[in-house]
């Protein structure tokens, strides 16, 4: 019967030293004679330690607790061990949740692809497209750079008033007209030729201080812009020097435009020639 009168609440009061001597001795006798399972008292004590560490005790209970449980070094050590165990459990739990979240995120990503084979073909196609696009863009950049280098070289050749170094092959050209369309001038570039010099004879009476030209092989998208061309001292022909390496077998079309001092352009004249290796 006595066993039934000892509740968790009364045990807590006992542990906090809030019972009179009679009640205290009654509980202590029960503990000594095993009438109250000792583990139950021990569990009640653990709850009390936890509540203290979580600051969940009322001020008066806290004061009582300190009187009972923070008095000896053994009691202090017990409190610290409880705190360490709690701290370990909370930290370990958080660590596991974090690593579990990361792992399940990775699994979800893989599962997403694994469970949906219908995405495999489109993904593969997309990869191929990306590779092709990257290759095409790189090729485009490479061509643009190459053209830039060649246009720079063309610019240097035409800026120089003297004769360039290396073997030169000259080709006089007249503008394309209805009458001359059938007779196309042919240029044979021998292996030792490094520079081709086109001499453009214009039909126009008006002369200009500078000219610009656009050279393109018929059938190619690539064209070369040639700026700052000047008429020869006699004023008869416009000289255009080209690196021999840019001229490959085929028919070339050249548009020549004179530029007035005010920046306006004159009428365009067209020239055409074919190259044989």
């Amino acid at each position: 019967m006595e066993k039934e009168t000892v509740t968790d609440a009364s045990l807590r009061q006992f542990l906090l030293g809030r019972v009179d001597d009679e009640e205290r001795q009654r509980i202590e006798k029960l503990v000594i004679t095993n009438a109250v399972p000792k583990e139950r008292v021990g569990a009640a004590e653990e709850d009390l330690l936890e509540d203290y560490l979580e600051d969940a005790l009322s001020p008066s209970d806290r004061e009582r607790f300190l009187m009972q449980y923070a008095y000896t070094s053994a009691q202090q050590r017990r409190l610290q061990i409880t705190q360490d165990v709690k701290h370990w459990a909370i930290t370990e739990q958080q660590r596991r949740i974090t690593s579990k979240g990361q792992a399940s995120g990775r699994r979800r990503s893989f599962a997403h692809f694994r469970l949906k084979p219908m995405f495999v073909m489109p993904m593969a196609a997309a990869v191929v497209v990306i590779v092709v696009v990257v290759f095409w863009v790189n090729r485009k950049i490479e061509l643009r750079n190459r053209q830039f280098v060649l246009e720079e070289e063309i610019g240097r050749l035409n800026a120089s008033s003297g004769s360039p170094k290396g073997q030169i092959s000259s080709l006089p050209l007249r503008p394309v007209t209805l009458r001359s369309a059938a007779t196309e001038t042919e240029l044979v570039i021998r292996p030792n030729i490094q520079v081709v010099e086109l001499q453009l004879f214009c039909n126009q009476d008006e002369s200009y201080s500078t000219y610009q030209a656009v050279l393109r092989r018929i059938g190619d998208a690539q064209s070369f812009n040639i700026r700052n061309l000047h008429p020869e001292p006699e004023g008869k022909a416009i000289r255009v020097r080209l690196p021999a390496q840019i001229l490959t077998t085929g028919t070339y079309h050249l548009e020549l435009t004179g530029l007035r001092a005010d920046g306006r352009s004159g009428p365009m004249e067209e020239f055409q020639f074919s190259v044989r290796g």
């Binding site: 979580e54 165990v85 709690k86 370990w88 459990a89 909370i90 370990e92 739990q93």
Partner: peptide, 8 residues
């Protein structure tokens, strides 16, 4: 122990 003390 881990499970029991995981929450406060």
């Amino acid at each position: 122990i881990l499970d029991y003390y995981a929450k406060e």
